[in-house]
Design a protein around this nucleic acid. Structure first.
Lengths: 229, 229
DNA sequence: GTTCGAATACTCGACTTCGAGTATTCGCCT
DNA sequence: AGGCGAATACTCGAAGTCGAGTATTCGAAC
């Protein structure tokens, strides 16, 4: 069988940890927390235990021993297998070398934002910008502290990536807001007029009809657009 | 009951579409495809139908009529409810105004990349960069075509966001690669040495012991680091 | 010596996600 | 008139996700 793997990146983290040394699930979770990996890998107990079970079923890890330490409940310690080590490498290779579309909530929201009137969207993006800037400040502070304590850059590389994306989002939202505030964003007037008509209680089909008359030029693309490429 | 909603953004898309006019599920999927929303909202049939069912159970949409057109199979047309319209607005407001951590696979991979030796990571990121640049080229071409056909910017706003993130990722990977190639990335030597030792078959605990002697200075942070903030 | 909160170590089941598979019908070409 | 591929319209079940809940134990303070 073709060494399939779970889809949750948490499973990769488990493989990497067990590549260092055998552990029981709860220890994995605390190690991940100590190393600040919960910021870059979604960790929750339910998923952790089901991912471990799934890895075991596929033969990528195996139970090493079941011990009871002190009077604590019994724990099962797992170790990585040969196959598991191979899968870990393959998986990392793929994730690092091959970009793959990730869907974000914000992108989805942007693509549906036309359902709200332009003024409101401007207002909301203004709020978002403030939130983003605040976030950025605390991220910078965290970097500052890490540097002052002598933590090598390598250990925070994922946080730096995330900070780079944050900066890009800030720049994007700022630019978009500028376009909205000056009304210079292409298509702005159609959008505005559409909500004006809807607000006045004009039924959907009529709105569409009116718009295609009033903005005939701007909507000329529709002919091509409608039928794919 | 407090008007809960499904978590899948596809459900939001359904609400927005039904806010325009009643539709049956398959029509939703084709409309989303026509408007190029499948690029920003993950769409697959299984999810679509279960999301519709879930919206109906919560009273956010309702079956309007069940028709059989021609001799095609029977289709159920849905319409949005008052509550549904409210939830749609609330949801959009939240997504647009409030940023929320999104976990990407690449971020996870970066945070685990230490499990591979530095040379290999450099090689893999080089590949990634090439892929990203290729992607960027085709995205630019798509924008070019859209502009030439007269499509207003507004209609591609989500694609522009995604392009901004792509550009940021490219810049990040380029910078990281530079740091790796010159070996100037903080912590590079520890990383390299660690794989050297592992490769020579030194057991885990010993590796750790050696490193903490050899790199005492660079690892001084550990004292603070280990016990949280 | 006891109280009380934090940490340890998981379990459970409701809910979602996913994509391959199925069955039909339309439209075009011959 | 018949064959065939694309489009229509969904179904199914296996797998994965999630976080609240449970039960215990440790440690520090009073």
């Amino acid at each position: 069988m073709a060494a399939t793997r779970p889809s949750n990146p948490l499973a990769l983290a488990v493989l990497v940890l067990l590549g260092e040394r055998p552990m029981h699930p709860y220890e994995m979770s605390s190690t991940l927390r100590e190393r600040r990996k919960e910021d870059s890998i979604k960790l929750n107990y339910g998923s952790l235990y089901s991912v471990v079970e799934s890895l075991q079923k596929r033969g990528l890890i195996e139970a090493a021993e079941t011990v009871r330490e002190g009077r604590r409940p019994e724990r099962t310690t797992y170790a990585i297998t040969e196959t598991g080590a191979q899968v870990m490498v393959d998986w990392l290779v793929e994730l690092l070398s091959t970009p793959k579309k990730e869907f974000t909530q914000f992108e989805a929201a942007l693509s549906l934002a036309g359902a709200l009137p332009p003024d409101q969207v401007t207002e909301l993006l203004g709020q978002r910008l403030r939130n983003l800037l605040y976030q950025q400040k605390s991220v910078e502070a965290m970097f500052e502290e890490a540097r002052s304590v002598g933590l090598p850059q390598l250990f925070l590389i994922e946080a730096e990536f995330s900070a780079a994306l944050l900066a890009a989002e800030i720049a994007f939202v700022e630019q978009l807001l500028a376009g909205l505030r000056t009304g210079s964003l292409g298509g702005f007037e159609i959008w505005q007029r559409m909500h004006e008509l809807r607000g006045a209680g004009v039924p959907p089909e009529e709105v569409e009809a009116k718009l295609s008359v009033e903005f005939a030029d701007d909507l000329a693309f529709a002919k091509h657009y409608e039928q794919g490429t």
